[in-house]
Design a protein around this nucleic acid. Sequence first.
RNA 1: GCUCAGAUGGUGGAACUGGUAGACACGCAGGACUUAAAAUCCUGUUCCCGUAAACGGAGUGCGGGUUCGAUUCCCGCUCUGAGUACCA
Length: 934
Amino acid sequence: MDYQFKDIEQKWQQFWADNGTFKAEDKSAKPKYYVLDMFPYPSGAGLHVGHPLGYIASDIFARYKRLKGFNVLHPMGYDSFGLPAEQYAIQTGQHPAITTADNIATYRRQLDQIGFSFDWSREVRTSSPDYYKWTQWIFMQLFNSWYNKDIDKAESIAKLVAHFEQKGSAGINAVSDEEILSFTADEWKAFTNQEQQSELLKYRLTYLRESTVNWCPALGTVLANDEVKDGFSERGGYPVEQKKMMQWSMRITAYAERLLQGLDTIDWPEPLKEMQRNWIGKSTGASVRFPIEKDTHNSQLITHNFIEVFTTRVDTIFGVTVLVVAPEHELVPALTTPEQKADIDAYITQTKKKSELDRMADAKTVSGAFTGSYVLNPLNNEKIPIWIADYVLAGYGTGAVMAVPSGDQRDYLFAKHYNLPIIPIIDIQNIETEADPTKEGKYINSDFMNGLDYKAGTVAVIAKLEAIGAGKAKVNFRMRDAIFGRQRYWGEPVPVYFKDGLPHLIEEKHLPLLLPDVDKYLPTESGEPPLGRAEGWKHPEGEYELSTMPGWAGSSWYWYRYMDAHNKKEFASKEAIAYWKDVDLYIGGSEHATGHLLYSRFWNKFLKDLDLVVEEEPFKKLINQGMIQGRSNFVYRLIDDDGRGTNTFVSLGLIKEYKTSPLHVDVNIVENEILNIEKFRKFRTEFEDAEFILENGKYICGVEVEKMSKSKFNVVNPDDIISRYGADTLRMYEMFLGPLEQSKPWNTNGIEGVFKFLRKFWRLFHNDAWEFSVSDAEPSKAELKSLHKIIRKVEEDVERFSFNTSVSSFMIAVNELTDLKSNNRAILQDMVIILSPYAPHICEELWTLLGNQAGSLSYASFPKFNGAYLIEDEFAYPISINGKTKMNLNISLSLELKDIEAFVLANADVQKYLDGKAPKKVIVVKGRIVNMVV
RNA sequence: GCUCAGAUGGUGGAACUGGUAGACACGCAGGACUUAAAAUCCUGUUCCCGUAAACGGAGUGCGGGUUCGAUUCCCGCUCUGAGUACCA
């Protein structure tokens, strides 16, 4: 029979599902291997052809590892809480659970068609109560923990309480809020329960505090920093503003250093690690306290008598000529003198009006206002004016900087603009036109530092500041604690109720705290989140928390649930975690670099601190698959003399001769840039009687690479490809497209080649009448050579994730075997095993036709490479003169270098090239090349 | 601005530690089969000169360098893509 991909693929997909072929074993003598994909959010649009790219790669790898004798865990699930289902619910009233279930069904059908070897018995859905029970449980563990810096680990809050009871707050080195109390053991015991709980909240790893959040009025919710792009929400593109709110936060900053250090221990793409490093943003410097000049400030309002700054160049402290604080800085009202009040107020109003975008666009304009107050340089008591300016950010460091105009360009521009002094502090500094941030040279104008270099100077100045209590070395991180609440419906309820204004965990036995039904998915009239509408949803002791968890909650631990997906007692059993440990290979997009991938590492480290998991890092190796972009096609509509569009279309090569305007055309009616005119006439009714100006009898379309989207008519659906060519072709073609990690436009132009290859492979097993026919003869030398070449090549390629080159090699091997007219059973059976990770359906079929037990292919052994079959006794040496190849010469590989040289020089053709002259030098590299210099 | 990745035929791409640049595939051109088309098969296909072949020349973004030999290593530049940004 000819290659009937439809029947074959359906048959085997059914077989795998019925027989649980890919079920991973929890106990096995085989070594484990865990291959994970980033699970999808099941959107209503279904999968387009770009989505499966990573899944295909990981599936090939998983199948390959099974053949190599590993017990492979390769699961799939859905990140099914999220905004789109809720937006849809607001518009239609349909419960997000229903939308989500529908979408999941579509995804599942589409995924099944591609023939993935997922162990579906372990499927997880983050929106299922069986799952989010454990998300809530982990939240409770975070609530019950604090970070002990002395042992650099999270510990139970009970331990902290015990310490407070015995020794008070002395000796505690914790990551906490800034305003913590100092108390003795007796004072602690004298606190009311209320006071104690309020104090403990400042230590908990998940805590409640008023913070400035990214509020999106259009979405009615708070967004994380990584969900905001350029002042607009990533989803929907709505404006985002800053707002102060009581919010749940996660103390991820406690793990900043470990998150940074851990990057050196994992095999991830360097750009991705770099993004996390930048996001964590560690900078080493010093914090310095500048005492406020007593006479000038409004002493009634003052809360402390100094301004603290963070600087990475504390060595430049003698160059400070102005202290600049953020307009939002808490001391601004106190520092403003009556004479300057009008200026300051005007400036603050002006700043508030500017959106974040304006502020960025305005980066070059210098602006600011003088408060009228001064600080003193702690090292020489010089009076330094205090200004406010919006180039200083309230959210970074302390919201105040010591400006050194000679060393920092922004400070330089500021000083120039407002005529403030600029003091050079390094002998080789050139500050005529701009700041010079050099660290070379010796200090001048710097008191006791004069003559020292950067290293010695920094040490000296920090020592001095510490001695007088005005500063100390400090490490600062850019990363902020992560906001953990959303004012939305479709997320995990926070397992907390409020009593007397303080949060309390619900009892563990009452987990999961189920998401209640509501009449509408909108905020209440009083502005409470949608959960405020749930009737009778109340804890006996108080009101439940009304926000839900953010999208990243459920995805921050899901890889553990796959290890033991149905456990009712634990998020995963100790035994399962001890066996599967961590993810060996994780494939997904780089867009999660500073979101999911950072939060997951954070939760993992936390779970490790509690000895609930065994590895410090969750994902040993990570690969980013590239984005598949859309490839849009255009037709060119003729414009008439009045400037109106006509119903005539001009082929691409002729548009220079006419006046035309481009128009997106559905890529599914264009093949190799040639428009299918009949289908085009049916594309839209207005084109029914369209006319065409053709070239060579064809209409050629224009091409552009854009994002894949419905409005651009460039979405290619895997279902269409599969019904035309089959899943095996789709799988191989997606790999053939180019290197996995590279972004590339989708282009169906070459798919025929892959389809032809599979037919050619099928034909090796069949005679001219399409009857199955293989020979049991001894394989020939040439056949064995082809086979072992491909064995080695595929092993090398798969191990370095170079799937595109192995597809080429398969083509070469099949071309060679076709030329050899090979139908040798031994050879072809091994070929089937090697190809099966890429094209599993056709291989299963041929495997059974060869007489093997159905379904046993997935656990067959990958053929062993034997180099003996590849040994050659001759090599066609390229003979080059001055590096230019002139001819090839067959020479025995057993010859020594000297003999090769003699053999080459004795050759008549070589002599012709040399024109009778002796070469100056002859380079012979055995098995590679002969080069002569003349 | 900063950080990172990349630039190879008409197209997607290959060349793993410096050793025959353009594998494999698409497209295109010519041919076979066919009443015809589709499908299939064969041949050619980096560019330039040349009727074809032989022969010759150029050639991996640009300009230099190291080397017997550079797509690969080094220096400088241009362009493209991604991330990030008054981060003190």
